[in-house]
Design a protein around this nucleic acid. Structure first.
Lengths: 339, 339
DNA sequence: TTGTACGCGTTATCAC
DNA sequence: GTGATAACGCGTACAA
């Protein structure tokens, strides 16, 4: 087993000082050509690579960025992550991921852990628990320490930092408008509780589109789930109770479940009832019929988040200007709506 | 902006030495009760937390584990990752992820980067590029440096290290046996090129099951894709050319594509043709009909990989005993096969 | 041209 | 009880 070699080893072996070795490896002009050659040859032979940790300690820069997401087995977060990873890697940064599992406590613990020197900045989407509790002190502490933070998708007004979101309101607005143009009258919405920032925005877009088209808002057509988990029975009751001809869902899981249910009741999609779901993921693509989706462009979102973060990390001056990038959602038409 | 505080700051502020502060904070018996109290109160007030990087440098242990996977937007890898993250986190480790994007070069680069002190050990699945090139020198270097390595799912015989895989051969064997029990005669297999270790194993299981049941192997019933990408036309040609009544697919994407295609040709699933696909993911669950799947238990696999790695990392003695854990696959029955 | 000394933040050892 | 010192590995200002 050939252990990692350090400057000290090389210096001792070659009978020179550590700083000479250090300079020689950086091709410093101060060092004589022969010494340089000797040192470089030796370093190459033993495959010397500087120790990242030592460099981090010295530079007070780790070249790591911390990503905290609620769930990794979730297509949208996964695409965002890919964008982050891609951009960060290209810039020479590594990505440390922690999963909050939608829990406030785990989000806090992970953040504090990473904040103690492990990373240069954070990119994160708030956990459900955090949004429910509405407590952002852990974020505040981090930003007050001067650690850059970028929030994406699930954000909060309470924290001053860079953010990147999609225009959820407009996405919902456009979807509902499309339904209305297609002649739909009783448009339902399946969503989660309001403490999710995205759900609130989407609900607002839904209501705006209805009112702009002279359709009265009907509370009975809103189906709310307390979390990301589904109760098949509740969906069934809903569709037995309410006669609807279009459904906007805040995620594809709810949408797919509903589609299967109404199909089993003998309804035809999109003739009798049409569907649009947020988060253009695999399920939307492979459902039968395909689910028309509001694409959130996760990968692009991730790239932008990483770009914003790294810019802040690398900028010397600490101006306190924070920007929010709003990406435009796109509707991907598939078989669940008429064209 | 209140910057991170260090031992030095506390020492200076309180007019004591750094080592006194360090000891006081660790509740050392050597330190006087009043000094301890004073120091601890001050530390709490200013929210002192030791710097991870400095500790890493001192201990030569980072409490980070490096995970290198071919693709993050992939349900199976994602579930494995969740298992790794969960276990590692519980043990106080962070996870640094790098995505090789199925490329040999990116795998090498990422590995070398992380190997320079950033992590205590690696967990990885080989990229397609690496398996194709069949070059494992970067793995060899890492293990020779004494850095523990655990391979999962996509492994190689060429490297001596801990491994965790599922019994792919048996999974395929069981699936095909089920087809035969259900009276199927012309059983096709959709797979990738043989350089994937898992594809080889699954193909072997397929052949064994046929031969054990007295069915001749028929090369024409094997549809091979060069990579993970799908050519719709090729699938169509295949099903137009060959009359098959059962299909085993090495992944769910190929299976779902095929199901949609044969359905569009008017065939009934599972009456006319039945399907089983590897990787029990979201698509299998939500397809119509649901796709009977060979579950790979990714999360469990991840937990085991993390457990094996951390055990090696924390064990002082460097015995060279490597074990391979083989998990048993399970068939999850859904509508794509008769019960 | 090369080497010495110091600092990054922490801990452990040893002296006072 | 408390503090000085060395060490982890590296880079660099400064001295020789």
């Amino acid at each position: 087993m050939k252990k990692k070699i350090t400057l000290k080893h090389i210096a001792r072996e070659l009978g020179v000082s550590i700083s000479t070795v250090s300079k020689a490896l950086k091709n410093s002009e101060e060092i004589g050509a022969d010494t340089k050659e000797k040192v470089q040859a030796f370093a190459k032979l033993y495959n010397y690579k500087p120790n990242n940790i030592a460099i981090s300690l010295k530079n007070k820069r780790t070249k790591n960025i911390g990503v905290i997401i609620p769930d990794i087995v979730h297509h949208f977060f996964t695409t965002v992550f890919r964008g982050i990873e891609k951009y960060a890697n290209a810039k020479g940064y590594n990505v440390i991921v922690c999963v909050s599992d939608e829990s406030f406590d785990r989000e806090v613990i992970n953040m504090e852990l990473l904040a103690n020197g492990s990373i240069d900045g954070f990119i994160m989407a708030l956990s459900a628990g955090t949004q429910l509790k509405n407590d952002y002190n852990h974020l505040k502490e981090v930003t007050e320490q001067g650690i850059p933070l970028v929030l994406f998708d699930r954000v909060t007004e309470d924290i001053k930092c860079d953010k990147v979101i999609i225009n959820d309101k407009k996405g919902a607005y456009n979807a509902v408008t499309k339904f209305i143009k297609d002649g739909r009258k009783r448009i339902a919405m399946i969503t989660t509780e309001d403490y999710f920032s995205v759900s609130r925005e989407r609900a607002a877009g839904y209501r705006d589109a209805l009112s702009d088209n002279g359709i009265a808002f009907n509370e009975d057509l809103i189906l709310k789930f307390p979390s990301m988990t589904i109760d098949e029975k509740v969906i069934e009751d809903f569709f037995n109770r309410e006669k609807v001809d279009a459904v906007l869902s805040v995620n594809e899981i709810f949408a797919i479940h509903s589609m299967r249910l109404v199909q089993s009741k003998g309804l035809k999609i999109p003739e009798d009832i049409s569907f649009i779901g947020f988060t253009d993921g695999l399920l939307s693509k492979y459902a039968s019929p395909g689910l028309t989706a509001v694409a959130q462009h996760g990968e692009h979102m991730g790239e932008i988040a990483a770009e914003m973060l790294i810019e802040k990390v690398e900028s010397e001056l600490e101006e306190e200007t924070y920007t929010t990038r709003v990406l435009e959602p796109t509707i991907i038409e598939r078989g669940s709506t008429v064209n």
